[in-house]
Simulated scan of single mutants.
Amino acid sequence: MHYNRIQPRGWTSLSHWGEAIAIGTDGFIEMKDLKMTCEVDGQRQTIVSGLSNVGAGRYLIDPWYGGDNQGAITITKTPEGYLKIPVKQGHISHWWSSKRPRIINGRNCRVESTIKASPGVYFSIGGDWWIDQSSGWAGDMVNNVYMGRSSWFDYNGGWQEVVFQ
C-alpha cells in the first residue's frame, strides 16, 4: 500500500525497512536479497541493492512500537551470506537502512526482498521519506514520512518474493 508516492519538497533521503512479529513462539526471518528502486526525474533507478548497511531494533508490540523504546537486536549471517533476524514474541523486530541514501525528486519507490520465515512469524516491508541522511526519529511524521508498506506475509515453508510498490 502506497500512501506517499512523491518525495516531500526539500527532503533529501529515504529508507527501506521491514518488520516482523512472532505468534505462539519465538522465531526468525532470513533475508536473501534486498533492492530499492525509485523513479528519479522520470527514470527508474536502483537506490539500494544488497544486504549491507542494515540495522535493526526490537520494540514492544503493545502498544505498537512501545513508545519507540528500542531494544538491542543482533543480525547474524547464515553460511550462505543471508541476513538472519531474530523475532521474539511480544515484540516487533524492525530493520532499516543504517545508511540512508541521498535522493532528489524521487517518486513511486519499490522495495523488493526474498524472505524466509520460521513458523508463526509474520512480516512486511516498506519505506519512509526522510528529511535528510542523518536526522533521527523525532516523533511520528516529523523527520520521516511514511511512504507505505507491503501486505503482511507469513510462514509458507520456503522463500517468498516480497514487494512493496
Rank of each mutant, 00 (worst) to 15 (best):
R107K: 15
I29M: 07
E161F: 05
H16V: 02
E39N: 00
W17N: 00
V87L: 12
D68N: 14
G81A: 12
M31T: 12
D132Y: 03
G120I: 00
G27T: 07
S118N: 10
G90I: 09
T74R: 14
W11A: 06
M31W: 04
F153N: 03
Q133Y: 07
A22H: 08
H2V: 08
Y155M: 10
N69S: 13
D140N: 12
D62V: 11
S49I: 01
M31R: 03
S135G: 01
T74E: 10
P119K: 13
R102W: 08
S135T: 12
V111Q: 01
K116P: 01
L60W: 10
Y155F: 15
G67C: 08
V162Y: 01
V87F: 09
D140T: 08
N53L: 06
R149N: 12
W95E: 02
G127D: 06
N108M: 02
Q43T: 14
P101F: 07
K88V: 15
W64F: 15
C109D: 02
S13I: 08
P86C: 09
F153E: 07
F28M: 06
V111H: 03
R110T: 15
Y82K: 14
Y82Q: 13
N105I: 09
N144Y: 01
I131R: 14
R102V: 06
P8C: 06
W129S: 03
I115F: 08
N108T: 10
E30P: 00
S97M: 05
Y155T: 04
Q160M: 13
Q70A: 15
R107M: 04
L83M: 14
R107L: 03
S15I: 01
E39C: 05
R9Y: 14
S151I: 13
L34N: 01
I47R: 00
V142A: 05
K88N: 14
G24C: 04
V111T: 05
K84L: 09
C38I: 03
S98H: 07
Q45R: 15
G120H: 11
P63V: 04
M1N: 11
W159R: 03
H2T: 12
G55I: 07
Y155P: 08
P86W: 11
Q45I: 04
S134Q: 13
M36E: 03
W95G: 01
K77D: 08
S49E: 15
Y155N: 12
S49Y: 04
F153C: 04
M141A: 14
G158S: 03
S150E: 04
G10Q: 09
